[in-house]
Write a protein that binds this DNA or RNA. Structure first.
Lengths: 214, 214
DNA sequence: TAGATTGTTAATCGATTAACAATC
DNA sequence: TAGATTGTTAATCGATTAACAATC
């Protein structure tokens, strides 16, 4: 096994979760080994790309045999840090925040929710995903004590930029942001943006294109 | 203005919503014109890329002047079909479905919700985003009458593949899928996948990488 | 007209694919 | 050993960036 590459491109990183999900399916189906060729056919990728991708992190296969599914999944799990169990807080207990806090699919993604906050007094005290909603005024105290490392931002878009600044000051390093553009984010902040509207606009485009093709 | 390109790469398409959002911000700020250089600096892209992207669809600028913000937004709106107002149904009235149905940010993305469906009798009859939840048994009848063209899939992952097959048969062409991998999707189906877990795993990786850099 | 900035062609860069020697 | 399939290097392809003539 060779040492991992200096810097791995984002294109490769974003394929790792897909490999991981696929390997989980294979394990569920009782498959013990798979070749890059088979995996490629199943996932719609070339065998070559799969081997290139994996070899960014090390040699996980065996010549003449292929890849051990269980072992490969475990390695990808380690690479992505899915066992980290980082403490994460959720800001915004609205519909979307509630959906994220209640989602079972997010367990095993490297974090666990330790608190929910909202600045709407009407929501404070209600239950969201097994947690009692706290007022955002309690954030400083809570972070000093619990030291969460990640935050999910699910607030109306106007409030997001200031919030990320504040949370960075409170020691939070990673953000999963559903609230649009973040203005003047600290360079140390690691932000994963999800723009739901963008996906829908893209779909709108593709449907329009499709109509015109006919 | 030249005629649009034969086929535009997905990389370009996925930047269109970002341009659109940025132009909206500019309009909000009362900006009337902008050069590719200024826009690039603000968005973190090169001026060259912006000009290349826009010229896939036509020449919207003016030499020596730049781009008229209002006009450019309008053109991008047309390109993406954001005024289409396609009838869309939502399948799955759980937390996530509810959040999507209630979201105000999705108006102006080229569609409007016309119905919500769930196979859980306990949810049928409840209100989600101003709509009364119907039972999935009513889908055939509803689609025959209302002829929706799009569906949002927000059901537990096991149920998604069959559902897409069924909805395609009922005339639905575009899918916004939150329910993981779709097995054996009809080739005619246009599917926009959103894997929330993937984003979180990517964040997990980036945070791990960051810790190791120190 | 002179200056600015586009539209577009050419050059560069990075990512994907192909090829093949290494080896289980 | 022979067959299979990896790890890795080389070739190709596509996307981004640079350059510049066209033109407002």
């Amino acid at each position: 096994m060779k040492s991992p590459k200096e810097s791995v491109s984002l294109a490769v990183i974003r394929r790792l979760p897909k490999y991981y999900r696929y390997l989980n399916d294979l394990i569920g189906a009782g498959v013990a080994k798979i070749s890059s060729k088979e995996l490629g056919e199943a996932m719609g990728l070339t065998a070559s790309q799969i081997r290139q991708d994996l070899n960014c992190f090390g040699g996980f296969g065996q010549q003449g045999y292929g890849y051990n599914v269980l072992y490969l999944r475990e390695e990808i799990e380690k690479i992505m840090g899915l066992r980290s169990d980082l403490a994460c807080i959720l800001i915004g207990a609205g519909h979307l925040g509630g959906a994220l806090a209640s989602s079972r699919n997010l367990t095993g993604c490297g974090f666990r929710f330790v608190g929910v906050f909202d600045n709407n007094a009407a929501l404070v005290g209600t239950t969201v995903g097994n947690m009692i909603v706290r007022h955002t005024d309690e954030l400083s105290e809570f972070c000093a004590k619990e030291k969460p490392q990640m935050a999910v931002i699910a607030v109306p878009s106007g409030a997001a930029s200031k919030l990320v600044q504040k949370l960075t000051d409170l020691g939070i390093k990673g953000f999963w942001n559903f609230s649009g553009h973040i203005e003047g984010a600290p360079t140390s902040a690691i932000i994963e943006h999800v723009h739901l509207e963008d996906a829908m606009m893209t779909l709108s485009y593709r449907m329009k294109e499709n109509r015109e093709d006919e």
